[in-house]
């Protein structure tokens, strides 16, 4: 499970946008993330597993490990559906 090559995260105003460098950037289908989404993204981009990413979240936010892991898995599923994670 990893972020596909070419996909990067960029900050735009107070949001984060997932870009496909060299591909197509569609305003109509843009994936934007909030702070916590960006945290998960960066953890995955650093090569962490879902469990390790969840641990990183618990160090940044006051949430239980179970809740964090649930969020990470949900994020991964959505990114897979969007074709960003393989």
């Amino acid at each position: 499970m990893k972020i596909k090559d070419g996909f990067v995260l960029r900050q735009v105003a107070s949001s984060y946008v997932v870009m496909n460098i060299g591909g197509e950037l569609s305003f109509n289908k843009m994936i934007t993330l909030n702070e916590s989404g960006a945290l998960i993204w960066n953890a995955l981009a650093d090569g962490l597993s879902a469990e390790e990413a969840a641990k990183r979240i618990t160090s940044e936010y006051e949430v239980s490990y179970e809740v964090a892991l649930n969020d990470v898995n949900s994020f991964i599923e959505k990114m897979k559906e969007a074709g960003v994670i393989e």
Binding site: M19, E24, L25, N28
Partner: peptide
């Protein structure tokens, strides 16, 4: 997860996208 962003805010990444050889698409 998806919400609208203004063209002014996003121009730097449009620019990066175009320079990388990619395309951008939007409703006029």
């Amino acid at each position: 997860m998806n919400k609208p962003i203004s063209l002014d805010d996003i121009f730097p990444i449009i620019s990066e996208q175009l320079v990388s050889g990619g395309t951008a698409s939007f409703t006029i």
